[in-house]
């Protein structure tokens, strides 16, 4: 083929791709870019415009983060929460994904899969309130344990840090299960068998083959959990009570309680910056595993 016609072919292909992509880009602009730019604008004003009060441009909302220290402290505890939730999600989700992908077959696999996906289909609020009923003193877990155990136990996890962790792990573990399931599925069974026939124990196979080969799935799932958990507010608020004040709940307060949208917007962008920074710092690891 001669150079000109290939170029032309490429160009017409590019045109076709542009036509196909246009609706998606339009949607992105409308749904993401416009609201986001509005929020950027809000984060630099003293008072919400259109409310009749006088307003001016300022950086005070961002300065508040650095001058008071309370927000930074809350952000740190949110980060810690996100790390812990991600950790428990991986610890619980990876083995579940392994069993789904490599142990169960046919019907039983479908059934268990459904159970794992179920939290996705239930309303988040319902889910969190159900946990509140379970974890309360005199609640479901408490009553159940006291019914079977010969001694009296008092389970009162509600309004505590562990309750927040439990609620969040339950909400987010399906992400880890799904991403790990996909990468575990892709591992050829005969590769595992070959390792076993070469004398490797089950543990060695896990350490040297299964975990390295499913690392992309683990990392992708961890990111999917980590990022939203930093900004989460529903689970901390309902299950954490007074202990449940985190960065996400403070942002929520600015929007729904104190109506200080400019501060809320500024805090949100600081969170976004921190998340992007963490992802960038972790990206060499992720790229290596992918």
């Amino acid at each position: 083929m001669n150079g000109n016609s290939t170029l032309a072919a490429h160009r017409s292909q590019g045109m076709k791709a542009a036509q196909l992509l246009f609706p998606a880009y339009l949607w992105l602009v409308l749904a993401v870019f416009l609201p986001l730019s509005a929020m950027v604008f809000f984060s630099f004003v003293t008072e919400m415009p259109f409310t009749g009060k006088p307003w001016s441009m300022t950086v005070a909302n961002y300065a508040a983060f650095f001058t008071t220290g309370i927000y930074a402290k809350l952000l740190l505890s949110s980060l810690r929460l996100a790390f812990e939730v991600t950790f428990w999600c991986v610890v619980l989700g990876f083995p579940a994904a392994y069993v789904l992908a490599k142990v169960l077959k046919g019907r039983s696999r479908e059934a268990i899969f459904l159970l794992v996906i179920l939290p996705f289909w239930s309303n988040g609020l319902v889910r969190v309130f159900s946990w509140a009923m379970v974890l309360r003193s005199g609640g479901i877990l408490d009553t159940l344990l006291n019914a079977v155990l010969p001694f009296k136990v008092d389970i009162d996890l509600i309004y505590s840090y562990p309750a927040v962790i439990i609620g969040l792990v339950h909400s987010y573990v399906p992400y880890i299960v799904l991403t790990c399931y996909l990468s575990l599925q892709a591992i050829d069974d005969s590769v595992i068998e070959a390792a076993r026939s070469l004398g490797a124990s089950r543990f060695t196979v896990l350490r040297r083959l299964i975990i390295p080969l499913s690392l992309p799935g683990i990392v992708a799932g961890a990111v999917l959990v980590f990022v939203p958990v930093i900004g989460s507010f529903m689970e901390p608020r309902i299950l954490g009570g007074r202990t449940g004040t985190f960065y996400g709940t403070v942002i929520e307060d600015q929007f729904v309680a104190v109506f200080n949208w400019p501060l809320g917007a500024a805090l949100s962008f600081i969170l976004l910056a921190v998340v992007l920074f963490i992802l960038a710092a972790a990206s060499p690891v992720m790229r290596r595993s992918a």
């Binding site: 050829d188 005969s190 590769v191 068998e193 070959a194 390792a195 040297r208 083959l209 390295p212 080969l213």
Partner: peptide, 9 residues
């Protein structure tokens, strides 16, 4: 093995 089953990593 027929599929060779080499360790891809």
């Amino acid at each position: 093995f027929q599929s060779y089953a080499l360790f891809p990593n």
